[in-house]
Design a protein around this nucleic acid. Sequence first.
DNA 1: ACCTGAACACCGTTCAAGT
DNA 2: ACCTGAACACCGTTCAAGT
Lengths: 232, 232
Amino acid sequence: MAKTPTPASRREEPLSRERVVDAAIELLDAGGEAGLTFRALSERLATGPGALYGHVADKNDLLTAACDRIVARALALPAAEDTPSATLRAVALGLFEAIDAHPWVGSALTRSPGPMPMLRILERVGQQVQALGVAPPAQWAAVSTLLGFIVGVSGQNAANAQVAQARGLDRDDFLGGLATRWSQLDPQQYPFARRIAADFRAHDDRADYLAGIDLILAGLISTGRVRPADAS
Amino acid sequence: MAKTPTPASRREEPLSRERVVDAAIELLDAGGEAGLTFRALSERLATGPGALYGHVADKNDLLTAACDRIVARALALPAAEDTPSATLRAVALGLFEAIDAHPWVGSALTRSPGPMPMLRILERVGQQVQALGVAPPAQWAAVSTLLGFIVGVSGQNAANAQVAQARGLDRDDFLGGLATRWSQLDPQQYPFARRIAADFRAHDDRADYLAGIDLILAGLISTGRVRPADAS
DNA sequence: ACCTGAACACCGTTCAAGT
DNA sequence: ACCTGAACACCGTTCAAGT
């Protein structure tokens, strides 16, 4: 029932945008998007709420900056692999895991399409698509498919985790409960959901995610946009 | 500068969950997620804010119900086509257009993974995946890929539209502005974004979205999970 | 049984006053 | 120049009082 997990970092160094964003990430990780409050944040930084506006335009700016920090870190991690498609898989998995660890990033990413965070992902994914040998006219469609899939599925997965956490369940109990409810649906109206329930209970998010990436890569190969040799 | 576009529906019939959700959708369409307020909603329904809690558990319940209404309508529309993949494309496009017309549905969908709206989409997409002849063990991975892509890309597209609308720009001006900014990026750090900028300016969201669906279908075929004859 | 609307415990944001 | 923190204009939600 601890209201303040860490008593608050004392005020040694002066306030800075970096320190504000760091503290915001801690609050977001601890309490989700609802946990980020200018009052809680200023308390943690041992100052008044008004002081934050010297380093951050508004709450949206703060959320985007926090999101960007996580994304930048996640993209910096995976090294170049032997083949473009292996690197692409590593980048995609790195993002999946970063969003899984910081579920609020999922919704924050979708909200701010213009600025930095999405651009970083676009660049990293785009470079691999180009390295795969996709011709310029087809590059945009390939990148937009991959981008949508990566951000969409990672965000969905994180949302699942958030709901589970909010209800105090672990992932397996949450999926299990959902699967049980599906298996009890009206067979006339929901035949597929009923039948898939068991597979859903046992599924591996990470494996399915990577399978999706591979499915898209397979599509790029089979439509002649990538030479098979270029995809690991 | 009209604060109340429609003066408010007079109170003839009694309050009901349906009427509350209908009014919520109007507010959401008019002002996005920020436009939905229990005060504005109760005013529109000529009652007090407290009265709404008789028909709706809380704001999240209301948002999910509104989302579900839109999704149910969108899924009811597309008729069965000649082939499963053509039907799948029609369903996917119907959702894309519904989310484009009601951008708040994008984020609402991602937020509530358990309940109805996602289940409806899962069922509809799942039935087509099954009709395509995908074997049961591979069905879940195929459905989860399609689901993530459909919801992810549609939501991303809607978020773009929302940001553009919030800044008072039309879609072309918004994309054009983004493309211009990309084309001015540092060529060392963002070579891909720079080069893709022109294609991005000219791209067709709907066409790219359908191309993504086809890419995933092509992947299902080439990995032997679907017989080519079964995909239109 | 259902509605009403004031009241409660919060928000993000601003801005005069301080240092 | 930068911080402070009270004040403003809002929220979602509750609940005694009404009908």
